[in-house]
Nucleic acid binder design. Structure first.
Lengths: 230, 230
DNA sequence: GAGTTTTTTTAAGCTTTTCTTATGATTTAT
DNA sequence: ATAAATCATAAGAAAAGCTTAAAAAAACTC
């Protein structure tokens, strides 16, 4: 479920507005043109915007006023796009809360790159920190919560079972010999005639198949060890 | 306790580097000059930087390589400051992860404004999740007042109990091992056979359940640690 | 420095997990 | 086909981990 990214383009010149909208659409964002300050305000109220492109010379309301409205309320990223190219205007714009300032005439590629760059940083900011998850078939393994969900059912595994499952799931194709497994999970050398690993495997399989009887997750490779069944 | 803001200035020209450092100092940030790519890498390892100013033409290592190193690891904001002013270079820089691109010769005020603007957004990003109120079930935790209210009843916790509760509540899903907990709360290495954490947990649970006998807040994950019960 | 509070240690009882053992099943080799 | 090797599973003993109370030690308070 991808979130759509909305960009408000506030620019009275029809051609330039269209051009900007085209740039935005090409990057797979969703542009909304606004041709006056007052129109812009209506849109600003209505939606949650991810980015505003703002011309400074506008009918109805100056760009500076709009900028103030935006920055006083939210922290929506703003890029000013303006024909006023004096240093003073630039500095003032940036200091009043704009994130970038592009002078007209602008280079299409640069505008696109600056939009992407700003959204990249903004998205990183609002994105919830990603969960540390590993998935195989319908097994979901959360490494922070140390939680295992199979077929929608939450399992309570013991440490050994959990550690074995993590090991298998982080190398889904590898065959783990008993020696392998033992030394990784127990952190001590393996002495051949040991049934311990087998028992834990059996218990783990048992719990997994109780959560989903129609699926096999762990494969026995005779004489070699175990592996996730793919 | 104000956090100092560190800015790494990677620029081989001595005069320009000094000028940039002066701009930064004037805004009350802490500049660190680096005069080559290799020198920059050393600094990058050593500290947590809030911003990097990066010249593209460098001895030892190109700016592009440094940019890649930075963006591949962290998300430190980067402003490129370069004499290469072709559109292509700009776009490429921005697309490879830079947040801004300033062409030489630059205007001092504009550089300063762009630095402030970027840091403004960056700080907002990292400070946003730092709320002073944390809530879980009917536990309200005020980090400023260091007060805990459960079920409407104010609790008096000891420092240890309080710190443990804060830790649990700031990562509601995470399982904290005793080692985890001990090292976070006590700030010293954990030696396995220690019952201290257990005792504090018991006391904390005791106080919590006195405030609300009908609710369980802390879950024991056998052999793994503790976690907030959700 | 005596009294109070907090923290740590100790120890006993309890719960859960782990390991061992035993037996039966399955696969491979001859 | 039969023996040998390897694996699966159940059950119970042993070990490890957790809880809690209470005492000892340490850290504050006045």
């Amino acid at each position: 479920m991808e979130q759509q990214i909305n960009v408000l383009v506030i620019e009275d010149d029809n051609d330039i507005n269209q051009l900007l909208c085209r740039i935005i659409k090409k990057s797979n964002y969703f542009p909304q043109p606004a041709y006056s300050g007052t129109e812009a305000l209506i849109y600003l109220e209505k939606k949650n915007w991810d980015l505003v492109l703002l011309d400074l010379m506008l009918p109805g309301m100056t760009g500076e006023e709009i900028l103030e409205k935006i920055t006083s309320k939210d922290s929506i990223p703003v890029i000013i796009i303006s024909a006023k190219s004096e240093q003073q205007t630039k500095v003032k714009g940036l200091r009043s809360g704009a994130d970038d300032f592009i002078s007209k005439p602008f280079d299409v590629e640069e505008v696109s790159a600056r939009i992407d760059s700003l959204l990249r940083r903004y998205k990183r900011a609002i994105e919830a920190p990603k969960r540390n998850q590993v998935v195989h078939k319908d097994i979901q393994l959360d490494l922070d919560a140390k939680m295992v969900v199979v077929n929608g059912i939450s399992l309570t595994l013991t440490v050994r079972e959990y550690t074995i499952l993590v090991l298998l799931m982080t190398s889904p194709n590898k065959v783990f010999s008993k020696s392998n497994l033992f030394e990784s999970v127990w952190n001590e050398p393996f002495h051949g005639d040991d049934n311990t690993v087998n028992v834990h495997m059996s218990n783990l399989r048992n719990k997994l198949s109780k959560a989903n009887p129609n699926e096999e997750y762990i494969e026995t490779i005779w004489g070699m060890g175990y592996r996730l069944k793919s």
